[in-house]
């Protein structure tokens, strides 16, 4: 479990704290989504979770290991993988296999074990045919898969996904999201998805809305759906379908529940006879 208690963080030379007094628990094998407008503190929060940033106040602990102790940082980073938005800024090797091996090499594993993990991780993301390929010649979606494999090769318990889809086309997004969910089911890895898209966040068990460095709301996707106009205030674009239901409900006599997320249910309500 990742536990944040009373965590605040101010960047060096920053005028106000990027994160203010956040307390939160993330369970093993949980899937949560973190949402919020640009500059709300989402990415700072992500970097606090794996000890890239250390809290100014409060404490972050991963499975009981506090990030305030320097000797805990290596085990924390082994447990908590962090995927960044832009794959080009994380790829550092000249061959896919070297890229994926970088993490296990840092953990000081035996060459045979590293080879084993590289092969397994690449198979998990269906990129095993590209093992001797230079990563920078791959497409955006393939690059993000390689980055993902690089994290999986470290066998993490938690994956923090910081806007992993921002550089991908719709098809790439869908494929990658499916992959994340598969990892969770097969490997029991907890997912923390940071995203701007409510549609993607709906896949999670819990959605946390961060605004102005603080937790604004924690709720299930159904809870979040019913927030209506409040969502826009915290910089989140409501789902198309919610806008549509909102418009319908303006008509006198029409009352459709606001927590409907799929078209089929809406059709059932609008045309009960069919």
């Amino acid at each position: 479990m990742i536990r944040l208690s009373g965590v605040s963080y101010t960047y060096p030379h920053g005028e106000r704290p990027a994160i203010k007094n956040i307390s939160l628990g993330i369970n093993g094998n949980e899937f949560i989504a973190i949402m919020g407008r640009n500059g709300s503190g989402k990415s700072t929060l992500a970097r606090l979770l794996n000890g890239l940033l250390l809290p100014g106040q409060g404490d972050v602990s991963v499975d009981g290991l506090s990030s305030s102790r320097p000797e805990n940082l290596l085990p924390i980073r082994k447990k908590v993988g962090l995927l960044f938005p832009d794959p080009d800024s994380q790829l550092l090797a000249n061959l896919v296999e070297e890229e994926v091996a970088f993490g296990p090499e840092n953990l000081g594993l035996e060459p045979a074990e590293i080879r084993n993990r590289v092969d397994t991780a690449l198979k998990m993301v269906s990129m095993e045919d590209y093992i001797k390929y230079p990563p920078y010649l791959l497409s955006g979606g393939q690059k993000q898969r390689i980055c993902m494999a690089s994290l999986l090769a470290m066998q993490p318990d938690y994956l923090i996904l910081d806007e992993p889809f921002s550089m991908l086309d719709p098809r790439g997004r869908k494929d990658l999201l499916t992959l994340f969910k598969k990892m969770r089911e097969q490997q029991g890895i907890a997912l923390v998805l940071i995203t701007h898209s409510l549609e993607e966040a709906m896949q999670a068990e819990r959605i946390i809305i961060v605004d102005n460095g603080q937790i604004h709301t924690i709720g299930t996707p159904a809870d979040i759906m019913t927030m209506g106009a409040q969502l826009t205030q915290v910089g989140i674009e409501p789902l198309e379908i919610s806008n549509f239901i909102g418009e319908l409900n303006r008509n006198p006599g029409v009352k459709i529940p606001a927590d409907i997320t799929d078209i089929e249910s809406l059709v059932d309500i609008l045309c009960p006879s069919s």
Partner: peptide, 23 residues
């Protein structure tokens, strides 16, 4: 800056205690 963060996030701590895939 981005790359150094990504490397650190993957447990890079310099050469100490590091092994290699290909020897």
């Amino acid at each position: 800056e981005d790359l150094s963060q990504a490397m650190e996030a993957r447990a890079y701590q310099g050469g100490e205690g590091r092994t290699r895939l290909n020897i």
